[in-house]
Design a protein around this nucleic acid. Structure first.
Lengths: 127, 127
DNA sequence: CAGGATCCGAAGCGATACTG
DNA sequence: CAGTATCGCTTCGGATCCTG
């Protein structure tokens, strides 16, 4: 039931807020690439991860990881051994994004198709 | 099927791109409020719409409307009559966002609930 | 290796004023 | 009414260097 018509102002604003929270959680330039990298190549260490994600700087990777940890998507595992080893991995909670990402991907693919030919540069993020 | 594991690099990058296109289309601070306003109160004229959406400036409303028109969400209807009347309305295509917004809302609500108590200010957009 | 500190340019957004 | 022009602040993200 996608954002239906008959509703109170209260419900509407709440729904609006929820959607924006969700957008905020996966928004930005790098959160998705980080998730993708961890999904594809499994748990990784900081520099390893940075190399996996082409183009990201240490500073940005660091702040993204912190936010995603706050959101519960990522676990920062510290192995206090001979040399301390820090590993980042996706939590099970990250899987709850499945529906969201699925819907976004499906709609996005369809939209890309529809928009094809038009001034793509104006409706897509810069490369 | 939410972004499954076994896939080629090609497919993965494509999916990534699609998701980011979708995020871009509904992202930003005002696109959702604009959609909500048009949904709730029907087709409206520019100033009317600006009054409906508390806090938006004419400049920002103008650019948002343009982008959303490019994306096919909005139709700018020009009635060339005694005084020219311009009306903005949602297109049927805007309805295809239903699943996306539904998924975002559902996950967002659940997430908000889970995060409750934590440093909400740090994971949510400013008010 | 795992980040933090600093600087800088670009983009987003708000406020005000102005035009046809 | 339906916007555009201009300005300035703030945030985002990139680059470089530095440290324990």
């Amino acid at each position: 039931m996608p954002l239906e018509k008959p509703h109170t102002a209260q419900e509407c604003t709440a729904a609006l807020g929820a959607v924006q929270d969700a957008l905020y959680a996966v928004g930005g330039k790098w959160k998705l690439p980080v998730i993708a990298a961890l999904r594809d190549r499994g748990p990784q260490r900081f520099n390893e991860l940075q190399r996996s994600i082409k183009g990201i700087s240490a500073r940005v990777l660091s702040t993204e990881l912190k936010q995603m940890e706050l959101n519960g998507f990522i676990h920062r595992k510290i192995d206090t051994g001979a040399p301390v080893v820090v590993t980042y991995e996706l939590t099970p909670y990250a899987d709850t994004l499945g529906n969201v990402l699925g819907a976004l991907r499906e709609w996005g693919a369809q939209h890309r198709n529809k928009i094809r030919g038009k001034i793509t540069a104006e409706v897509s993020p810069p490369f």
